[in-house]
Design a protein around this nucleic acid. Structure first.
Length: 100
DNA sequence: AGCCTGACAGATA
DNA sequence: GTATCTGCCAGGC
């Protein structure tokens, strides 16, 4: 039952991203898993199309590397929020991974 | 209708 | 450690 349209999916994804506290991060696949539908590509698509009003920098790849867009900006923002970095420009998944 | 691209993920070399 | 391929799902041409 996927009576949910694209707009609803966008709202759910943005809602989850907006719920991520500062200093924590979630991977695209994690968000997809939390929602229970779609996939990492769909979450990424939402961020690319309507990820403006949300802290997109708190959404990183499974490797812990920030999204390829505004790379330097993501690093700066994550560092400013005190996100556990395993290396410069790389987030420590395992500590920074947020859980509801 | 088909083909290509992509803010991804996992495996392999 | 990085580079490359494939698989997945949806959108754009």
């Amino acid at each position: 039952m996927s009576a949910t349209g694209w707009a609803d999916y966008v709202e759910e994804v943005l809602d989850v991203v907006a719920t991520i506290p500062a200093g924590r991060v979630l991977s695209y696949g994690d968000i997809a898993e939390i929602l229970g539908r779609g996939g990492p590509r769909q979450v990424a698509r939402v961020m690319a199309t309507a990820g403006g009003p949300v802290p997109w920098w708190r959404v990183v790849r499974a490797d812990g590397r920030p999204a390829p867009c505004h790379d330097g900006e993501a690093d700066r923002l994550l560092l400013a929020e005190g996100t556990p970095l395993r290396a410069p420009g790389r987030v420590d998944m395992g500590s920074a991974r947020w859980r509801a």
